[in-house]
Design a protein around this nucleic acid. Structure first.
Length: 428
RNA sequence: GGAGAGAUGGCAGAGUGGUCGAAUGCACCGGUCUUGAAAACCGGCAUGGGUUUAUAGCCCAUCUAGGGUUCAAAUCCCUAUCUCUCCGCCA
């Protein structure tokens, strides 16, 4: 949620900045509603003030044993008038709030302006894609070769875009998650967390999945007036960031750095036919998430370090990657600035997204009322929140299988992973 | 699943219809005292919103949440959520 002041006092400038990300703000409607709100709210509050004053004088008169009938007469139909004004105001505020909750974050000045992913800007590369002197297999073929990836049974048990893993492949998947968690907790200063995989609507509103993107989620109940029940998390960003909801954190405790390994669930509505082969796009996948809660002045530096933390995973695994900064048109709803990390996939002969690291600034914090108290400050101020994948475990498995394959179809185990696989150096 | 009790400021905890946004204690901030600290004493200390040049004043709202009764609700009624105790069940 943007600072409501932007929508009141800097409406035109705000609309222009939002347009760079392809969001059209209905300036006319908004200023019209805002004007109405102002007069209606003032009128309502004045009515309330006079009602309060009269009620108070009734109380005082009664205490003195005076006759309250004349004062009671003053009340007249104040109540009815107040009720109708209140109801009118509530409707108006609901409408304004619905708009406010649906407006995406303002892009940071440093985000390149562009329309879509073609306008993203590569900022660095690490590692050289390995040259293979044989025809490379993709991870689906490699997985089947080792009886490790079983798409058929997943379809039988559940449906498409699910996976059954077995044997050494399943073990490598587990090893990857363990390796990532240990790296982030031991070397990058994150605190490991175990969190619920089902969350309530307040949490989803807080991080921005709701109200606009409910169809991307799995809900435990069909959506009704009463709600949609609990929802499966699309990312651990939701429970981790919501830990700060309605909290005032002491300045001394910042930055808060949290990591969690969870399953993530996405309905992938509207992505029919995209990445249908393999593990790239699943309804259920594992991810190690990184979340930071920081002071506003620290958030851009925190985004750089958080991105480095994610990149370190790929470096330790020896997987070539590149990092791009997303243009304004390609950023997520709540992000002010985002770096995507893309890992080299030899079978696709391209770099594919394996992590997305974003600075949400105070966008989520405002929705969640996640604040901190500085010693010098009189009042608590909104935190800045950041999150990133460190990394998507399934996609990392894909990258390891494809990048570490040998001519005979065997897979060399990356050195960093061996301690987590009982010292094993090769699969198959 | 059954029976009962409860939810108040950062924390603890008073308050059962009318100057209650809320006693008191702790914590916190400032001051006096002290070489310094502690103790003691004095003072301050909720949040959101509106209006406004103003983090000045004034006003509105908030005692888990949502409804209701009333001129007036922390206080009475209804519903939901959560917590605790006992019983049952259970990894």
């Amino acid at each position: 949620m943007l600072d409501p002041k932007f929508l009141r006092t800097e409406l035109e400038a705000t609309a222009e900045r939002l347009a760079t990300r392809g969001f059209i703000l209905d300036v006319g409607r908004l200023s019209q509603l805002e004007e109405k709100r102002k007069s209606l709210q003032v009128a309502t509050e004045e009515l309330q003030a006079s009602r309060n004053a009269i009620s108070k004088s009734i109380g005082q008169a009664k205490a003195k044993g005076e006759d309250v009938a004349p004062i009671m007469a003053q009340v007249g139909d104040l109540g009815a008038e107040l009720d109708s004004k209140k109801a009118e105001l509530a409707t108006l505020l609901d409408e304004l709030n619905a708009i406010a909750m649906s407006v995406p974050n303002l892009p940071d000045e440093s985000a390149p302006i562009g329309a879509d992913e073609n306008d993203n800007v590569e900022i660095r590369r690490w590692g050289e894609p390995k040259q293979f002197d044989f025809e490379v297999k993709d991870h689906v073929d490699l997985g089947e070769l080792h009886s490790g990836l079983d798409f058929k049974n997943a379809v039988k048990i559940t449906g498409s875009r699910f996976i059954v893993m077995k044997g050494q492949i399943a073990r490598m998947h587990r090893a990857l998650a363990q390796f990532m968690l240990d790296l982030h907790t031991n070397e990058h200063g994150y605190t490991e967390a175990y969190v619920p995989l089902l969350v309530n609507e307040d949490s989803l509103l807080g991080t921005g999945q709701l109200p606009k993107f409910g169809e991307d989620l799995f809900h435990t109940k069909p959506a009704t007036e009463e709600g949609q029940g609990l929802s499966l998390i699309p990312t651990a960003e939701v429970p981790l960031t919501n830990l700060a909801r309605d909290n005032i954190i002491d300045e001394d405790e910042l930055p808060v750095k949290l990591t969690a390994h969870t399953a993530c669930f996405r309905s992938e509505a509207g992505s029919y036919g995209r990445d249908t082969r393999g593990l790239i796009r699943q309804h259920q996948f594992d991810k190690v998430e990184l979340v930071q809660l920081v002071k506003p002045e620290d958030s851009m530096a925190a985004l750089e370090s958080l991105t480095q933390h994610a990149e370190t995973v790929l470096q330790k695994l020896g997987l070539p990657y590149r990092t791009v900064v997303l243009c304004t048109g390609d950023m997520g709803f709540g992000a002010a600035k985002t770096f995507d990390i893309e890992v080299w996939l030899p079978a696709q002969n391209t770099y594919r997204e394996i992590s997305s690291c974003s600075n949400m600034q105070d966008f989520q914090a405002r929705r969640m009322q996640a604040r901190y108290k500085a010693k010098s400050a009189k009042k608590p101020a909104l935190l800045h929140t950041l999150n990133g994948s460190g990394l998507a475990v399934g996609r990392t498995l894909v990258a390891v299988l494809e990048n570490y394959q040998n001519a005979d179809g065997s897979i060399t185990v990356p050195e960093a992973l061996r301690p987590y696989m009982g010292g094993m150096t090769q699969i198959g």
